[in-house]
């Protein structure tokens, strides 16, 4: 009997908590920011890599592997921690994150980091490249899915909307876009800087299948990813309502933790919260 989604997610909470601790440790060691942006994606990445994507860390270039693109490259510490947890490279290597001569830069490089499909860092690239990948799957009847995780701020980019228009026109049912909708972009709230609402209606108007989930609820995320696979000719967007800095009380829903590194005291407080 196939596993139920609940069974597939049996230790997801534990894995996510572990990644959150790793993200904090990486950022603290490197005196790096972007912690809030990474923490909001952790549960999505955990479900993708442990319960959904058909990928093999031992054969990361298999032709018909599912493709995942982290278009919001600045949140890459969560991706690196998840990839290491999944076995793409030794977890010890995470200690080199943004150090001199490290292969783990502050924005992910597909040339150097095992498991990274596309180098990102400038916003508004990932969904376009993912559209090309999904088009290839459709044209050649290849059996892989493409999932792209974008940020809410990234929905300001015109190129993102070019891809949204295009993917629907080309009927790319194998393409799923997840929006990490944590409501805070670089320099303020989305509502203040560049309001996106009604976001779901916009995507529907562009002829995408739209689902909205709690982006920290593993079961909802997996259910939505599975639901998205049922449409042959319609791309799907999952609007994941998330909390920037999720898991660390003093970081949650703040603009500042897009930038700040942690002091020793803040680091220990945060780790303690995530260990409870």
């Amino acid at each position: 009997m196939p596993e139920t989604n609940l069974q597939r997610l049996s230790d997801a909470a534990q894995k996510s908590a572990e990644v959150r601790r790793t993200v904090l440790t990486m950022a603290h060691r490197a005196k790096n920011g972007h912690i809030g942006s990474a923490l909001s994606t952790v549960d999505i990445l955990s479900v993708l890599y442990h319960s959904f994507l058909r990928v093999d860390p031992k054969a990361p270039k298999t032709e018909d592997r599912d493709r995942f693109i982290l278009s919001k490259g600045h949140g890459c510490s969560a991706l690196y921690a998840t990839l290491a947890q999944r076995g793409y490279f030794p977890e010890k290597d995470l200690e080199t994150f943004i150090q001199n001569d490290s292969y783990l830069p502050g924005h992910p490089s597909a040339l150097h980091v095992p498991g990274v499909e596309l180098s990102t860092g400038s916003l508004g690239h990932g969904l376009n490249v993912g559209t090309g990948m999904a088009l290839c799957a459709r044209r050649d009847a290849r059996n892989f899915r493409t999932v792209v995780l974008i940020s809410d701020g990234e929905c300001d980019e015109g190129s993102t909307w070019e891809a949204i228009l295009t993917a629907a026109h080309w009927k790319l049912g194998s393409l799923t876009c997840i929006i990490d909708y944590n409501k805070i972009q670089s320099f303020g709230t989305v509502a203040d800087i560049m309001e996106l609402e009604p976001l779901a209606d916009k995507w529907r108007a562009f002829r995408w299948h739209v689902q909205e989930v709690d982006g920290h609820n593993h079961e909802q995320i997996l259910d939505a990813l599975e639901q998205a696979t049922t449409f042959a000719d319609t791309p799907s967007v999952i609007i994941a309502h998330t909390v920037k800095g999720k898991g660390v009380s003093f970081m949650e829903s703040t603009v500042e933790w897009h930038y700040w590194p942690t002091s020793d005291e803040q680091y220990h407080t945060a780790i303690a919260e995530l260990t409870l």
Partner: peptide
């Protein structure tokens, strides 16, 4: 493929296709 009047997307799509062979 006619990618429409959307050159940024066109290059991204081309890259995605090239990444798939």
């Amino acid at each position: 493929l006619n990618a429409g009047v959307a050159e940024q997307n066109m290059i991204g799509v081309a890259a995605g296709l090239a990444l798939c062979g």
